[in-house]
Nucleic acid binder design. Structure first.
Length: 512
RNA sequence: GCACCGUUCGUCUAGCCAGGUCAGGACGCCAGGUUUUCAUCCUGGUAACACGGGUUCAAAUCCCGUACGGUGUACCA
């Protein structure tokens, strides 16, 4: 399906690292655009000069690259509707603020922040809440209350001012949300929001409406925290005489324990990442962990995130980006917030780890082996990976599952020794060593049949022999099929480990 | 405070719009089975319609109210 009229955007503010809620919003935008053959735009909303954080923009871009979310138009990529950074569009907003003032939909306000704070405090003292609305604007210093000559003079003196939206006094605004359907609100409870700040920059409200219109955005898919300002945005479209886009307000991602919006602190507190990748605060040098550094695969991360608030309507749970694109629809996004579940996230990663080829996993594992100072052949490593990958969640646990393939046991698990190293073990293992030494074919099939035949012939206990054998080879009672292990480490190494172990554990005295 | 949004197993959720299912699946947890060990795997189990009214032969589903939670209420986004 192709629809060139579908255009969506993700519009982060570069005030810090993008958290997973933002990534999910971007993902839904991306999936919706791809599904419908539309375009997905990345726009940087940096109209708040006081909250600029160095590195945040680069972080956002890098995170999306890691996740596999791409944009058709962006700051780095450019596009026919640029610039894509709001600080570079400053002059555009001024022009539209003027237009609104000229048409009577907005007015100039000269109240200083200090004056407003004072008014707010006065209201608070009387247990009332101040809102700059139709009633209160009559008592404040703005172009509606001041004489035209006064306004002119203030402007000539370069007195700072803001542009406020003149909210109609009593009107019912009817809005439609793709997720929540019809939403209604009265302008009585709304206030005259600032559209243009005294520093010459627009606020989010003006900038986002102007840009969405100019960039021909057809669907605004954003977080639920924007729902309360939807009436203002709808009124702005109306004031400009523009057709408003469709809106979809996504439910929030919640803390795993208790309630509330997921925040940076929760990750530190509960021990899971809130960010796609690691972030170092440039001011405090505080480091926040990321999914990438924690060992998650980007496709597992995306899969997990996609299912947090959306479902395909059937029992499928494993989706790559193509499959997600195919299955995605706004109709199947839920209405209520979802809590992040660490266990489920791990399960997803486990699924993706199993799916990955032994060779590619070995490649990821190689640096860890090097770090541990262990020399391994990539082919051998891949083979070992194949034997143990079902038991791992992350590439790093993979090493713990197979280190014994490459490192001869230096110690023997005390509990296991106590339980499995019996009086007869020393002699049995010596016999087994001689038996294995004589074999020409050291394949798993051969060693297994020879060993089992010998056990049967000698009438030894299968459990007793195999556990003692495993103890000497692995150093503990763990790991995959023992004959697969010795086939991989080879005859020479097997015999040496047996020798070593026999020497280490020695003959156990018969207990009295 | 006010406004708006929401509420199905511990968690993610299906079912709700077009009332009739033992309220389904997944993660987790528990038990059993397989196995030379650990893990995997297989089988089974545990566990939910926030509450109260109403409409109806019949309500998780429609209506009203209550409670609880969330978001917003900045010259932040």
């Amino acid at each position: 399906m192709s629809n060139n009229n579908i255009r969506v955007r993700f519009a982060p503010s570069p005030t810090g690292p993008l958290h997973i809620g933002g990534v999910r919003t971007a993902l839904y935008n991306y999936l919706f655009a791809r599904k419908n053959g539309g375009k997905c735009i990345l726009r940087v909303e940096d109209t708040d000069q006081t909250r600029f954080v160095p590195g945040a923009e680069a972080y956002i871009q890098e995170s999306f690259e890691w996740c596999g979310i791409t944009f058709d138009e962006s700051v780095s990529k450019g596009g026919p509707f640029g610039p894509y950074k709001q600080s570079e569009r400053k002059d555009i907003y001024k022009q539209y603020a003027d237009q609104l003032f000229a048409s009577g939909h907005a007015y100039l306000a000269f109240d200083t922040p200090e004056e407003l704070t004072a008014v707010r405090q006065a209201f608070e003292a009387e247990k009332k809440t101040f809102t700059y609305n139709a009633e209160e604007r009559k008592k404040l210093r703005n172009s509606l209350t001041l004489a035209e000559s006064e306004v002119k003079e203030l402007l000539n003196n370069n007195t700072p001012f803001v542009v406020r939206f003149k909210m109609p006094e009593d009107e019912t605004i009817v809005m439609n949300d793709l997720i929540r359907d019809r939403v209604e609100v009265s302008t009585k409870v709304l206030d005259d929001k600032i559209l243009f700040k005294s520093d010459g920059m627009p606020t989010y409200h003006l900038a986002n409406v102007v840009d969405d219109h100019l960039m021909e955005i057809s669907h605004v898919i954003r977080g639920e925290e924007w729902l309360p300002s939807l009436p203002l945005h709808v009124m702005l479209y109306k004031a400009f005489g523009w057709q408003s886009p469709e809106f979809a307000h996504l439910p929030l991602l919640l803390k795993p324990d208790g309630n509330g919006k997921l925040s940076k602190r929760d990750g530190d507190r509960l021990g899971f990442p809130v960010f796609p990748q690691q972030w170092t605060d440039p001011k405090t040098s505080e480091v926040s962990r990321g999914y990438r550094e924690d060992g998650y695969f980007p496709d597992a991360f995306i899969n997990m995130l996609a299912l947090l608030g959306w479902n395909p309507g059937d029992d499928r749970e494993l989706f790559n980006m193509e499959e997600l694109t195919e299955a995605f629809s706004i109709e199947r996004i839920g209405k209520s917030g979802s809590k992040f579940d660490l266990e489920k996230a791990k399960w997803f990663n486990h699924q993706y780890l199993i799916k990955r080829s032994n060779e590619s996993l070995a490649e990821l594992l190689l640096p860890i082996a090097v770090e541990k100072g262990v020399l391994v052949e990539p082919e051998q490593l891949a083979e070992a990976v194949g034997l143990v990958k079902e038991r791992a969640t992350f590439v790093t646990d993979l090493w713990d599952q197979l280190d014994f393939f490459f490192v001869r046991p230096e110690s023997f698990d005390a509990k296991a020794v106590k339980k499995r190293w019996k009086a007869a073990s020393y002699d049995q293992m010596t016999e087994l060593k001689n038996l294995l030494a004589d074999l020409d074919d050291f394949s798993a099939e051969q060693t297994e049949s020879a060993t089992k035949a010998w056990i049967e012939e000698q009438e030894y206990g299968m459990g007793a022999v195999m556990n003692a054998f495993r103890l000497l080879i692995v150093g503990a009672l763990k790991g995959p099929h023992l004959f697969d292990i010795i086939a991989l480490i080879g005859q020479e190494e097997t015999l040496e480990r047996l020798d070593n172990g026999l020497h280490e554990l020695g003959r156990k005295e018969v207990q009295k």
